[in-house]
């Protein structure tokens, strides 16, 4: 999911004060440690994503928000 879509869904759910407080590149070597990135998906990424883009196949974000106090 794209960051803007995540933020938009949070707004629609009723969150306020939404902030992305950290963004980090998540490269193919990081992805190897994550269960969702199966061996076959890693292989597809290595074959289809240009080498110079493989350091960031996703972004790890930290998102903060809160509910209104009512």
């Amino acid at each position: 999911m794209a960051e803007r879509a995540f933020v938009e869904k949070m707004k629609r759910a009723g969150f306020t004060g939404i902030e992305i407080v950290q963004r980090d590149a998540f490269g193919v070597d990081d992805a190897r440690l994550h269960p969702l990135f199966t061996a076959d998906l890693i292989e597809v990424i290595r074959k289809t994503v240009p080498t110079d883009k493989q350091h960031q196949v996703a972004t790890s974000v930290v998102i903060k928000a809160h509910l209104a106090t009512g």
């Binding site: 999911m1 196949v57 972004t59 974000v61 998102i63 928000a65 809160h66 009512g70």
Partner: peptide, 20 residues
Amino acid sequence: GGRFCVSDFTIDEEDLPPEV
């Protein structure tokens, strides 16, 4: 007033090929 603080993935679909 409750708070929400999470780490998660985001992707930019324009940067990834259809095979992925």
